[in-house]
Amino acid sequence: MGERLIRKMEIADVDQVMEVEKATFATPWPPDIFYQELLDNKHAFYFVMELDGKIIGYIGAWIVVDDMQITNVAVIPAYRGQKFGEMLFSYILQFAITLGVARLSLEVRKSNRIAQKMYRKFGLVPGGIREKYYADDQEDAIVMWVNL
Rank of each mutant, 00 (worst) to 15 (best):
N147F: 07
E107G: 13
A61W: 08
D67N: 10
F34L: 11
V143F: 07
G53E: 02
K54Q: 02
Q69V: 03
R109N: 11
L38T: 02
E86V: 07
T71E: 04
P126L: 06
I33V: 04
W62M: 05
T71R: 01
V125A: 10
I59M: 04
V17N: 06
R130V: 10
M118Y: 06
L39S: 12
G2K: 13
F45M: 00
E107I: 15
G123Y: 05
R109Y: 14
D140V: 09
D67S: 07
K8L: 12
Q69D: 09
H43L: 10
V108M: 14
P30K: 01
F45V: 02
V64T: 05
G123D: 11
G81A: 02
R109D: 13
P31F: 04
Y134S: 14
A135D: 12
M68L: 15
Q69Y: 09
L88R: 00
V20P: 06
D67F: 02
Q116V: 11
F95M: 00
I70S: 07
Y58L: 05
E107A: 03
K42Y: 10
P31W: 10
V146P: 07
A74L: 13
Q69T: 12
F95E: 00
G127A: 05
S111W: 14
D137Q: 10
I55S: 13
R103G: 09
I70D: 04
L39W: 08
V143K: 07
D52Q: 04
D66I: 04
F95C: 00
Y79W: 10
T98N: 09
M87K: 11
Q69M: 15
D137E: 08
G2V: 08
K132F: 01
R80P: 04
A141T: 08
T71N: 11
P30N: 03
D136T: 08
N72Q: 08
K121S: 12
N112G: 07
G2P: 14
A135Q: 04
F95S: 00
M68P: 15
R7E: 07
Q36I: 08
L99V: 12
M49T: 00
M18V: 07
S111H: 11
W62P: 12
F84W: 12
Y91V: 01
I56W: 01
Y91W: 11
M118L: 10
F34I: 06
P28M: 03
T24R: 02
A135W: 11
T24S: 03
Q82G: 05
K83E: 11
G81W: 13
I114R: 07
F95L: 01
W29R: 04
A12K: 06
V75I: 09
V65H: 04
G128V: 04
G81V: 00
V65M: 13
E50A: 05
M9S: 05
A102T: 03
E86Q: 14
K54E: 10
Y35R: 03
L5F: 01
Q82H: 07
L93T: 01
S105F: 02
E21V: 12
I11R: 09
K83S: 14
D13I: 14
R120H: 04
M87I: 12
F122S: 14
A141H: 09
K121W: 03
P126T: 15
A115W: 01
K54H: 12
P126H: 03
K54S: 12
I11L: 13
L104Q: 02
L38Y: 08
F89N: 00
Y58A: 03
F47L: 00
Q36G: 02
G85A: 12
L88K: 00
I129E: 02
E10H: 04
W145I: 14
S90T: 10
I70Q: 04
